[in-house]
Amino acid sequence: MRRCLKCSAKSVVYLPQHRLALCKEHYLEWYLKRVEDTIKEFRMFDRTNRVLVAVSGGKDSLSLWDALLSLGYKMDGLYINLGIGHYSELSRKVCEEFAKSKKAVLHTVELEKDMASIPSLKEMEKRPVCSLCGQIKRYYLNRYARELGYEVIATGHNLDDETATLFSNTLSWQLEYLKRQYPVLSEGNGFVRKVKPLFKMSEKENALYAFLRGINFVEEECPFAEGASSVEYKRLLSQIEEKSPGTKLRFYTEFIRRVHPILKQEGGVPIGACSVCGEPTTSDVCSVCRLKARLSLGSSSSSPSS
């Protein structure tokens, strides 16, 4: 039986990459300190900033919201209802209940009202639905944060998300994507500052935090994420991690320490404002507005009166 490094009680968590065994109380303490240290190390925000956290109902975003509230930050939530049947209904309920239990503010965006649900958008798009969905979420997150006057957007991206993305972008040397892979993206050009305070925490660490804090989170997977390449990469990387603990953390932190500064020197693509909605884009009309234009074309051409 392993014992807690801090108090010698029976440990409930063992973290091989840190060679650390901890009891419940000291795990939660360790987790909060690690999140706080990450926020400070990367100067993500302070207690005077208004921060909007993107919540999906999953373990990562709810752990993030819970941790930041526990640490005394000013944090409201934004839930984007993607309209994915039972999965979205359940997610919304879980987010609403969490917000209520913490007496926190939760804003909700109804994708179906503003344009169309993800299942109907999937029908008209050729590219993988997860990349479409990701783009739409980023769009609404930035737009609502701006409209509601938040200075910072926080997302629950974890170490496994970041290393799977880094691995994928490295396999095809996507330099433009690699350039934007960093725990803090500064504000400017119409973008609100974006931060990932959990980027050093693995998925399991977040799930353990959520479980030990008694947070009710959605365990079900989005039905469209089935067979997503990111899950494959995560499984592959976990096999390497099992053989040599600490690999994921090293892969990502050494990328941001040694490679990212070199990539950053090269200037990025010029960014302007979308002529329709005003959100930042590299073209005249942003991709979400182009999608909306196709939606209205599609519905008018299919209506019998036209």
């Binding site: 999953g58 998925e203 799930a207 997977e221 989005c222 997503a228 899950v231 995560k234 976990s238």
Partner: peptide, 8 residues
């Protein structure tokens, strides 16, 4: 059983 891997 809690499986922490998620896609998307």
């Amino acid at each position: 059983v809690i499986n922490a891997i998620s896609g998307g």
